[in-house]
Design a protein around this nucleic acid. Structure first.
Length: 382
DNA sequence: AAGCTCCCCAACCGCCATGGA
DNA sequence: GTCCATGGCGGTTGGGGAGCT
């Protein structure tokens, strides 16, 4: 018997999320934080499985998500990282703040792969297609000599295609194994000696430092942006400390098995605001020119979001969060939120509780007078 | 306008790792 | 050591919008 999904077993709702469901989930997470995902749907009043809720939160509702097109810089970074990491989307995503593994995976499959192929680069190996094709054709020839009948399934039209197909299409569509329309994965499996990343046994990399202000890890790129064809694996294997540690992981919001309280949650997610707040902020900004910062009009919020400064950028019709902080009993500023922004149509619901946050393990490391230029490193662990 | 095809991307599936009982 | 619940991840699917005929 095949394994049933949790949704099937519990006769839960599947498919696209409605705005009402989003609202319920967002309200719940905002208020109580993420403790145990399996209990979230019940407590939030959703007919979904916990997994589904988790995914929806991580891929869509999370406040720090970037929206919109990938920049050229991000694109280059993804390609470089893929060259090193292969399809380890979660690890790639960890180097692109605000992007999810799913988003990057989709972007890769729908755009980047094609782009690379057009450039004559095999997306699986990052080698020139001519080289890859040469190897593949050699293997094809080998197999054909051994298993000629495999080609019998090809229609005349397809057979003629074989002769005229550009190399990069040939490599993905036809060739060996007798499959007429081999998927790239099947093809990859059959040709594992070709599609394997430059090196594969890569449990961890060191990301201890080198995170530039844009959030990218320059260490990784300087090391691997244009990596040599061979990399000394022994170096990697012997470095037991290698880990992705300095970047805000996409799963930093998850506290597996933990008991993250609502206030703790707000440490990570205070960037959500209610539409009411949004309009309030917008109005305040548009009428208050006394604290302009460049193109912005700054102000201090004292209503639904406390201890935070936002600014309304009228030219872009968006609200920017300059920072949010927490001052403890000693007056020490213990947290700053990274700069972010919200388009009006991205706003959802829910008050934000930013009080009594325990920021024990995080420390503000820099603060500029010019808030728009401030470079905050809130995830630098003490 | 209707039908068809393509393709993007949100969401699901299933496997694996981990941790607690 | 085993079982079970849970979370994380990569691969895959299919709904639906866009573009074309």
């Amino acid at each position: 018997m095949g394994r049933h999904s949790c949704c099937v077993k519990q006769k839960l709702r599947k498919g696209l999320w409605s705005p009402e469901e989003d609202e319920k989930l967002f309200n719940y997470i905002t208020r109580y934080g993420v403790g145990c995902w399996s209990s979230v749907p019940k407590l939030a009043g959703l007919q979904r499985c916990g997994k589904s809720c988790r995914l929806r939160w991580i891929n869509y509702l999370r406040p720090d998500l970037k929206r919109g097109m990938f920049s050229q810089e991000e694109e280059d970074l993804i390609v470089s990282l893929h060259k090193v990491l292969g399809n380890r989307w979660a690890q790639i995503a960890a180097q692109l703040p605000g992007r999810t593994d799913n988003e990057i995976k989709n972007f890769w499959n729908s755009c980047l792969k094609k782009k690379l192929m057009k450039q004559g680069i095999d997306p699986a190996t990052h080698q020139p297609i001519s080289d890859v094709q040469l190897i593949k054709e050699e293997k094809c020839a080998e197999n054909e000599s051994l298993e000629v009948p495999q080609l019998k399934g090809l229609t005349p039209a397809v057979s003629s295609l074989r002769a005229h197909e550009p190399a990069f299409l040939m490599s993905d569509t036809f060739c060996e194994g007798g499959g007429l329309l081999e998927t790239s994965r099947e093809s990859a499996e059959n040709n594992n000696y070709m599609i394997r990343p430059v090196f594969d046994s890569l449990p961890y990399f060191e990301f201890q430092s080198g995170v530039d202000p844009a959030g990218f890890n320059s260490n990784l790129l300087s090391q691997y942006h244009d990596p040599p064809q061979t990399i000394d694996q022994s170096h990697l294997e012997m470095s037991s400390n290698f880990e992705f540690s300095s970047m805000p992981s996409l799963t930093n919001f998850d506290h597996p098995g933990g008991t993250m309280s609502g206030s703790e949650f707000s440490n990570n997610s205070t960037s959500r605001m209610s539409p009411l707040f949004f309009h309030e902020a917008k109005d305040q900004c548009s009428t208050n020119n006394s604290s302009s910062i460049g193109n912005y009009t700054g102000f201090q919020m004292n209503s639904s979001v406390e201890n935070a400064a936002f600014s309304w950028c009228s030219s872009e019709n968006k609200l920017d969060c300059l920072f949010q902080y927490q001052v403890n009993g000693t007056g020490k500023c213990e947290e700053l939120k990274p700069q972010g922004s919200w388009q009006e149509d991205q706003l959802h619901i829910g008050p934000v509780n930013s009080s009594s946050v325990d920021f024990g393990s995080f420390q503000l490391t820099s603060l500029s007078e010019d808030l728009t230029a401030a470079n905050f490193d809130i995830f630098q662990q003490m």
